[in-house]
Design a protein around this nucleic acid. Structure first.
Length: 414
RNA sequence: GGAGAGUUGGCUGAGUGGUCGAAAGCGCCUCCCUGCUAAGGAGGUAACUGGGUAACUGGUUCGAGGGUUCGAAUCCCUCACUCUCCGCCA
């Protein structure tokens, strides 16, 4: 959520910044709404002030046993007027709030201009493509079973058997241990979150269709970012303990509405997938440094796995709703002969903090923190990348060295 | 599932209809004192928000939402959450 003060004082610049990401903000609508708010608010508050004064006087009359009937009539009139105006004011305030909740974050000045994903910039490429494999993961192993999953649940689910299930578990442990080594505190969190939490991190109200709702006020989490960030919702944090670094492994649930026909085969795009999430809660002055460090932490995992990847910076037009700057990490997928997203690391500046009311306390004041998060990494896609990049034909294959101790063997049965 | 107790500022916690945005303590800030440290003394210190260049001034907020009342932290109703005891249970 943007600061409404900035909208009042600096609308032009915000408008220009939002245009870079393709968002048209309706200036006339906002200014009329805010003007209406101002008029109504002054009227309501004046009436309240009058009522407060008369009520105090009423008390005085009562205690000296004087007649209050005239005064009561006056107050009744004020209250009747107040009721009418308050309703109007509340409607206006709600309209303003809905308007604000719909506005995406402002891109950082450093974000390259662009219209869509075609304008994203490759920052750096790491590792050489070494695989000659052309088979996709479903062809490489029969232990990833999407047909059985569709019997159990439907499309976009999977059943992993034997070494595939074990490899996934090994990857999770490996990634969590990496995060802990990099100073992140491990958490186990709820896999369902309420409306307030999801509004805080920006999924609601705008992206309700992307979520699975389980009850009136409960949704399956689309990422551990939601529970991890909301640990601090409504909290005031001592500046000394920043940056906070949190991690958790959770399943993630996404309805993938609007992606019909995209990546329909295999593990790439599922309703349920495993992910390790890295979250940092920081001092605003530090947040870009923290984004870089978090990006590095995610990259290290691919370095260790010796998988070829590239880091790309999202252009203004491709930024996610809540983000002011995002780097995606894309891993080489031999069967598709292209790099595919395996992590997305973003700085949300004070956007989530403002929605979630997360502040930090420094010597002479308080202010909203900045939040940063990214995957470290998406487990299913990592598993595919390992299969496809390391496969050399045959019914077994060698695993990357760093996984041996987690997997308990250097060879995977396919 | 049953019974009971609770939810108040950064924290602990008092407050049962107007003088309460709220005692006290802790913490924090400023100043004083002491060679330094420790201790001590004086004062200040809730949040959000409107108007105003400003000095200043108005409003809202005591878990959330309704209600009663001229007036609600305080009375009534609904909901959420927390705790205790009983039952059940991985």
């Amino acid at each position: 959520m943007l600061n409404i003060k900035n909208l009042r004082e600096d609308f032009e610049n915000i408008k220009i910044a939002l245009e870079k990401r393709g968002y048209e903000i309706n200036q006339k609508f906002f200014e009329e709404l805010d003007m209406e708010r101002k008029t109504l608010q002054i009227e309501v508050e004046n009436l309240q002030s009058e009522r407060n004064k008369f009520s105090a006087h009423f008390g005085e009359l009562k205690s000296s046993r004087k007649d209050t009937s005239d005064l009561k009539k006056t107050i009744d009139k004020i209250n009747a007027e107040l009721d009418k105006k308050s309703i109007k004011l509340n409607t206006t305030l709600e309209n303003i709030n809905n308007f604000l909740l719909d506005i995406p974050n402002i891109p950082d000045d450093s974000v390259p201009y662009g219209k869509d994903e075609k304008d994203n910039i490759v920052v750096e490429t790491f590792g050489k493509v070494f695989s000659k494999n052309t088979k996709d993961h479903l062809e490489i192993t029969n232990k990833i079973d999407t047909e059985t999953a569709s019997k159990i649940s439907g499309s976009r689910f999977s059943v992993l058997k034997g070494d595939m299930a074990k490899l996934q578990r090994a990857l999770i442990s490996f990634m969590i241990d990496k995060a802990i080594q990099n100073g992140y505190q491990e958490y186990y969190v709820p896999f369902m979150a309420n409306t307030d939490s999801l509004t805080g991190t920006g999924q609601l109200p705008k992206f309700k269709d992307d979520l699975f709702q389980t009850a009136e006020n409960l949704y399956l989490i689309p990422t551990a970012e939601v529970p991890l960030t909301n640990i601090y919702r409504g909290e005031l944090i001592d500046e000394d303990i920043l940056p906070l670094k949190l991690t958790s492994h959770t399943p993630c649930f996404r309805s993938e509405a609007g992606s019909y026909g995209k990546d329909t085969k295999g593990l790439i795009r599922q309703h349920q997938f495993e992910k390790i999430e890295l979250v940092q809660i920081t001092n605003p002055a530090d947040s870009m440094n923290c984004l870089n460090s978090l990006l590095k932490h995610a990259c290290e995992i691919l370095d260790d796995l010796k998988l070829p990847y590239q880091v790309i910076e999202l252009c203004s037009g491709d930024l996610g709703f809540s983000s002011c700057k995002t780097f995606d990490i894309e891993v080489w997928m031999p069967s598709q002969k292209k790099y595919r997203e395996i992590s997305s690391c973003s700085n949300f500046s004070d956007f989530q903090a403002r929605r979630s009311n997360i502040k930090y306390k420094f010597k002479n004041g308080k202010d909203f923190v900045h939040t940063i998060n990214g995957s470290g990494l998406a487990v299913g896609r990592t598993l595919i990348a390992i299969l496809e990049n390391y496969y050399e034909g045959g019914s077994t294959m060698k695993l990357p060295k760093c996984l041996e101790s987690y997997f308990g063997s250097d060879t995977l049965k396919l």
